[in-house]
């Protein structure tokens, strides 16, 4: 029933789109989410530079972003998406809602990771005459690296699953492919094959992340 000669290259194309969407969205989320997470920690009460109001505003914004179901966000930010990419359809357009969704998610994970760093290490650095940005750069981020990698891995996996959801409204990638060629044409085999490809991608991401985190964790 499945015409592999015709569908095969399209499956490959869809896989590439998924990797592309999630990769770019992840890169952007790191650029935005890591500083946001750092700010959440630094401005918190008892942080390096306590700013209660700014902290509450940032925290509220992050919570708002986290509480929106992705499928709603997808529709809600369509005007922004059009403004940025000129369209709301296809994988490039999907990068916008993916990034908006993953940034607060990652920011919270970064915040948690940084809070795990023993306060004594920060104190030791301050006693050495470190500036606040030195503390962030040379103590907080490097010491939290294993947790940060683990957080990034969780975020990529979440992005992959969100990107598949974007397929429902023509977002491109494997989700889109599964709906159009598998679901709408009643080609169960193809749907299953798509799921297997998704699983393989997630597996590779998770394994790489775990390895990296383990290698960077210098614990006995």
């Amino acid at each position: 029933m499945t015409n592999w000669d015709r569908v095969g290259p399209q499956l490959l194309e869809a896989s590439y789109e998924t990797v592309y969407m999630c990769g770019v969205a992840m890169g952007l989320s790191i650029l935005l989410g890591v500083p946001l997470g750092v700010l959440l920690v630094v401005t918190s009460p008892g942080g390096l530079k306590p700013r209660p109001v700014a902290n509450a505003v940032l925290g509220g914004l992050v919570n708002f972003g986290r509480s929106l179901p992705f499928i709603i966000l997808l529709v809600l930010v369509a005007p922004v998406t059009r403004l940025v990419t000129g369209t709301t359809i296809g994988s490039t357009a999907t990068i916008v809602p993916l990034t908006i969704s993953a940034t607060p998610f990652l920011a919270r994970l970064v915040e948690t990771a940084l809070r795990e760093v023993t306060p004594g290490k920060v104190e030791a650095a301050l006693a050495m005459g470190a500036r606040r940005r030195d503390v962030v750069r040379t103590v907080l981020l490097p010491e939290a690296r294993p947790s940060l990698i683990a957080g990034a891995t969780v975020t990529i996996v979440a992005l992959i699953s969100y990107s598949a959801m974007a397929g429902a409204i023509g977002g491109g990638g494997l989700g889109d492919f599964a709906i159009r060629y598998g679901y709408q044409r009643f080609d169960t085999t193809l749907t299953i094959v798509t799921v297997v490809v998704l699983m393989a991608i997630v597996q590779v991401v998770q394994l790489t992340g775990d390895r990296l985190a383990h290698r960077l964790a210098h614990r006995s």
Partner: peptide
Amino acid sequence: QFNLLDSR
């Protein structure tokens, strides 16, 4: 508690 950096 020594407060050394574990990553270094």
